[in-house]
Design a protein around this nucleic acid. Structure first.
Length: 453
RNA sequence: GCGAGUGUAGUACACCGGUAGUAUGCCAGCUUCCCAAGCUGGAGAAACGGGUUCAAUUCCCGUCACUCGCACCA
């Protein structure tokens, strides 16, 4: 039996990785809450990502920009325009169509240059029917951006949007970062944070959600270098997925054809992961955004966003390569990839084969018996000293019997468990048990930290 | 957003127009107990709201959530 998404979802809930958002009130579609273990897993993935793409790079700057931004940002970026899908409904079949697509199919030229009102007028003038020949209802604008009100009084002037992507924070801070650090080109601005999209239908656990977390960076380059860096980052992105421990056979690279690309992109490559139940779908992407964003912000803000080379050559607007990583989808991929079953003593065992560097709990410590104070005291001692070295990713468990504790740790992917028994009291050795093989070895207590690596 | 389906302990499932049962997990205790052992005890559920009815978890309607198809996914 292969793993289904339901298996993963139910383990996530049962073991405290991920819960339905607003659970006790019946939920809110497209929102999920990370429990203690999910939060640790997320933290570890972000930590690794920063280590891989940001830290130790002289020319990479991490920022943390505001979720609320001046609405002009979203006009400049094109999101208030193109994030808007004009939808129209066939009155009879209730099927929905994109108004702009419908017009184009009916021979209207330059549809993308028409405003919403103009599209509606054209539709009426040409008396266009649905593809099934039925009358159409009233077209409506569907905007993916969440509108929100700023300040005490709600009026037309007071609204803005929750950011639909983190990227704009990097573009609006381009000048600030350049002025503070004078980086040599090429250089990058990175960010990890939440974005909000009013998806029509959130689906598939944390795959398509209304509140999502993205790790990404904008890599600013000379226009003539774009192909070179596109190749470089594509290669690095593949190494990253390997670093996460994802099976190579479950990763696919997909060249996005022109008609499917975002309005700002000249070339896009998507990375697909083979999710349980869903099959191959997007986990990250790499886009060449040209100078679309900086140019537009320059025009709309009236500020000079050109880069001045240090050799005194002609200033220019940098182009951008953008590697982007869906954090929630990473978590779903890592958990699905790790979900394993085998047989132990004639019984089925479920365990998470997480890479040690991602596991939310690195090591668990048990006293063999909890009603023997001398065992418990010794075990507490080991627990405390390990906790110091593993910065909190150590778990204590003295409940039930030893077999149950091993199974519990298996299910949350703890790579190793340490058990303190009567022999420990005599010779200071402990048992270290391996998650994947269930094998045990006796180890000197003093050698522990090293042995756990 | 449309169409169809589902909604019962943490999880996975039963049953029922007369207030819910199983498995497993969980908690406490006993047990020199190393792979979900055993024994004893315990906590824990009808998504929310309305209607029909003497009585609704059960039938009907609405809302919400989830699943599957369609559309959407900048």
């Amino acid at each position: 039996m292969s793993t289904s998404l339901e298996d993963v979802v139910s383990l996530c809930k049962r073991r405290g990785f991920i819960y339905q958002g607003s659970d006790i009130y019946g939920g809110l579609a497209g929102t999920w809450d990370y429990g203690p273990l999910g939060t640790l897993l997320k933290r570890n993935i972000v930590k690794e990502w920063l280590k891989f793409f940001v830290d130790g790079w002289e020319d990479m700057y991490q920022i943390d920009s505001a979720i609320l931004m001046n609405p002009k940002v979203w006009q400049a970026s094109g999101h208030t325009e193109t994030f808007n899908d004009p939808l129209i409904e066939d009155i009879k079949t209730k099927k929905r169509y994109r108004l702009d697509h419908l017009l184009a199919e009916n021979g209207v030229e330059d549809v993308d240059k028409l405003s919403f009102e103009q599209m509606v007028q054209t539709l009426k003038d040409k008396n266009i029917k649905s593809p099934d020949g039925n009358e159409l209802g009233n077209p409506a604008q569907f905007n993916m951006l969440f509108k929100t009100s700023v300040g005490a009084v709600e009026d037309d002037e007071s609204y803005t949007y929750l950011r639909g992507e983190t990227a704009q924070g990097m573009f609006t801070n381009f000048k600030n970062v350049v002025d503070s650090f004078y980086p040599d080109i090429p250089f990058g601005i990175a960010q990890v944070g939440k974005s909000f999209r009013n998806e029509i239908s959130p689906r598939d656990f944390i795959f398509r959600v209304r509140e999502l977390e993205i790790m990404e960076f904008e890599w600013f380059i000379r226009p003539e270098d774009w192909e070179k860096y596109f190749e470089k980052w594509q290669k690095d992105m593949l190494s990253w997925f390997k670093k996460l421990g994802l099976d190579e056979a479950k990763i696919k690279v997909h060249e996005v054809p022109e008609q499917d690309r975002a309005h700002y992109s000249k070339r896009t490559v998507d990375f697909y992961f083979d999710f349980p139940s869903l099959g191959f779908d997007e986990i990250g992407g790499l886009a060449y955004r040209t100078d679309f964003d900086l140019k537009n912000h320059q025009e709309k803000s009236g500020k000079n966003l050109e880069y001045r080379p240090k050799d005194g050559s002609k200033p220019f607007t940098p182009h951008v390569i953008e590697p982007t990583f869906g954090l929630d989808r990473h978590i779903m991929a890592v958990l699905s990839n790790a979900y394993s079953k085998d047989e132990q003593g004639g019984e089925e065992r479920v365990f998470l084969k997480l890479p040690a560097h991602l596991a939310p709990v690195k090591v668990a410590v048990f006293p063999l018996l909890k009603n023997k104070p001398e065992l418990v005291a010794k075990a507490r001692e080991v627990y405390k000293s390990l906790q110091k070295q593993e910065s909190g990713e150590v778990m204590w468990d003295d409940n039930g019997n030893i077999g149950k504790r091993y199974r519990r740790q298996d299910e949350i992917g703890t790579p190793q468990c340490v058990t303190i028994d009567f022999q420990t009291l005599e010779d200071d050795t402990v048992t270290v048990r391996n998650r994947d093989t269930t094998e045990q070895t006796r180890v000197k207590k003093s050698d522990l930290p090293a042995r756990l690596k």
